[in-house]
Design a protein around this nucleic acid. Sequence first.
RNA 1: GCCCCCAUCGUCUAGAGGCCCAGGACGCGGCCCUUUCAAGGCCAAAACACGAGUUCGAAUCUCGUUGGGGGUACCA
Length: 353
Amino acid sequence: MFEAEGRPKVIRLKMPLEGEMIVQDAIQGEVRFDYGVLQDMVLLKADGFPTYHLAHVVDDHFMEISHVIRAVEWLSSLPVHWQLWQAFGWAIPTYAHVPVMLNPNGKGKMSKRNPPRDAHGNIIPVLVHDYIASGYLPEAAFNFLANNSWNFGDDQEVYTPQEAVARFDLSGINPTNAALQIDKLDWYNGVYIRQLEPLDLARRLRPFLESSGYEVNVELLSALTPMLQPRLKRLSAEEVMAYAGFLFAEDFPPLPREVLLRGFKGDTATAGTALRSAGEALAGLAAFDAAQIERALRATAEALGMKPKEFFSLLRNALTGQEVTPPLFDTLPLIGRDESLRRLAEAAATLAG
RNA sequence: GCCCCCAUCGUCUAGAGGCCCAGGACGCGGCCCUUUCAAGGCCAAAACACGAGUUCGAAUCUCGUUGGGGGUACCA
């Protein structure tokens, strides 16, 4: 009669009206549902296409799927699927409903539709791809994720996928929903960055610098990378520049007095003397390498009766213009002897004038 | 509303009745190292949601409450 009237029709799965259904889940254990509250779900829509429920069971049967692993939000539809398997008379695969990832603040599940935000209101990435683009190493992301709702055991936090696979078992998954702790991802990332071969790190850093518009001198980057390695939290031009921007600047214009004297408590004349003395010491070196530079500069500081801290902060100001840099002994060779001497002389001149 | 799942430090977790006045990690605080920043080392603070049971004994078992999450579509 419906058809005669031209009305659309669907095909539903008839569920028992009463009784209790017991399903098995590898993580949640035995779950019970009253048939009374379960609906007759649509299997074929009016347009003739199957719903997920039908497609899932039919597809997975013919694809010989052994384990269905999905998030707990699917647990509610498990009875329908269970009933379908039984209706078809097919063997039911192992179901495992894993906990969902909660937003970092623990409120609501992670979703790209409503991305979480940090304390500053910035969007926190949701897609794995976005994490990679944000400078997180795949190996760090894996390790971090693996430690959510599961753990390696033996109080070991850092491990490889191979090690994890060897130990992993569905029954070891903690059914509790877990909030993502981005701070810990940052820590993992640092751990993995430090484990990289320096040249590998340099290679991975390069595209991030280039996409930010920096021209990369491969030799310089390779020499710089070991200094960056213990300091970087992520692969990002921003972090690299925070430490070594002075090596990437187009030119190095004269620095104002307040920059040159930043953090220095002594008088200007003393500062000027220190810079000139450092220049003289460096000029006389047989080789411009870290070991010789360190020996010469420490001797100079001692001769001047200055504490290393005040002496080196003056040099850092004059040579880099930055408050934070990798250790000077290592970075000076990257600046080069001539340019280093030029910067020291220029700074001394500024202070004298 | 109804149904389902979950519940240990701020966060991720260890813990499957006595080994726990609860262990590890991140973060936080302090100290050491130190030319700045990191890294590294050491120390500290920090939790069994609550209430009833069961038991000689409960973070571990049961029930309830509260809280959180999810589902209630001709979406996945």
